[in-house]
């Protein structure tokens, strides 16, 4: 497959200090063939990959929390239009902070065609925590094993084939800052989006029968109430954990709706005090 025709197209500008234009970045999936979400731990080079794919200049800072909301860009590949959504960097999808909620809601309810999970090759175990959580939600994923050059300098070798076998999704070794692996990542995105690659994602096993039964009961019930729910089992688990935001979403029947990029809870509630 040749990626020579990979054209780079500027969809929207996410750099600079002008926040007003964030409002324009709604989810207009109608104009796109595929939507790709970009997730990963903080400081894994997510923004570098975003820039490499879209040609945008989102500023890359070496600290956690640089991307607070979703940034969106676009590229075309093999004649298809892809929208790329850069999610806030998070360690987990299970916690309660707002940036984690944004990332989680999009992977779960935004139904991206492909979710690229960026993992840091120098600290793989920690990064696999998020990768495995995302594989619980979706099987349309690609793992971008970034910072492979830094790992090499630290005498760390990662066997990408062993990893791909265990995870059941494509794994691409990258050094995004020098452009290494970008073509391979595009290839993997294309294969997963077109359905050419059939994933058999790793799933966490719960040996606990009581837990399995509880998940089944709730999942069935959830399906009855929210027809389009992509992953009722995952939602059921969160209810069993007592996840406040999911409980709230069920209560208000807003489960499954993705909030727009710029909608952030305003601070008026403080007024009431």
């Amino acid at each position: 497959m040749s990626h020579a025709e990979t054209a780079i197209q500027c969809g929207s500008c996410a750099s600079g200090c002008n926040t007003a234009h964030l409002a324009k970045l709604g989810i207009k999936t109608g104009n796109w063939d595929y939507v790709v979400a970009l997730a990963g731990n903080p400081n894994t080079g997510k923004s570098t990959i975003f820039n490499a794919l879209t040609g945008l200049n989102q500023h890359v800072g070496n600290w956690a929390g640089k991307t607070v909301t979703r940034a969106e860009g676009a590229f075309t590949l093999g004649g298809k239009k892809f929208k790329l959504v850069d999610l806030p960097g998070t360690y987990s999808l299970l916690s309660t902070s707002v940036d984690e909620e944004i990332a989680r809601d999009f992977v779960l309810f935004g139904k991206p065609d492909v979710t690229v999970v960026v993992a840091d090759a120098t600290r793989l175990e920690r990064n696999l925590n998020l990768v495995l959580q995302i594989l619980e939600i979706t099987d349309r994923a690609v793992v971008a094993l970034n910072l492979i050059d830094e790992a090499g300098r630290n005498n760390i070798k990662v066997d990408e084939r062993s990893l791909a076998r265990d995870l059941g999704v494509p794994v691409v070794s990258m050094a995004a800052r020098s452009g290494k692996g970008v073509d391979e990542l595009l290839g993997a995105i294309e294969q997963v989006s077109s359905g050419e690659f059939q994933a058999r994602p790793h799933r966490i096993k719960y040996t606990d029968d009581i837990l399995e039964n509880a998940i089944d009961t709730l999942a069935t019930q959830l399906h009855g109430q929210f027809e389009d729910l992509p992953n009722a089992r995952w939602v059921a688990l969160r209810l069993l954990e007592g996840d406040e935001s999911i409980i709230n979403a069920v209560q208000t029947a807003t489960l499954g709706t993705v909030r727009a990029a710029n909608v952030f809870p305003p601070l008026v509630q403080l007024e009431a005090r």
Binding site: E125, V131, I204, L237
Partner: peptide, 25 residues
């Protein structure tokens, strides 16, 4: 439950990383 789930995930992550990573000096 949250602790148990996270433990399950990290234990799988540890096993997978253990198979894939070989760290030298």
């Amino acid at each position: 439950l949250h602790d148990r789930l996270t433990e399950a995930i990290y234990s799988d992550a540890g096993a997978i990383a253990g198979r894939a990573v070989s760290a030298g000096e």
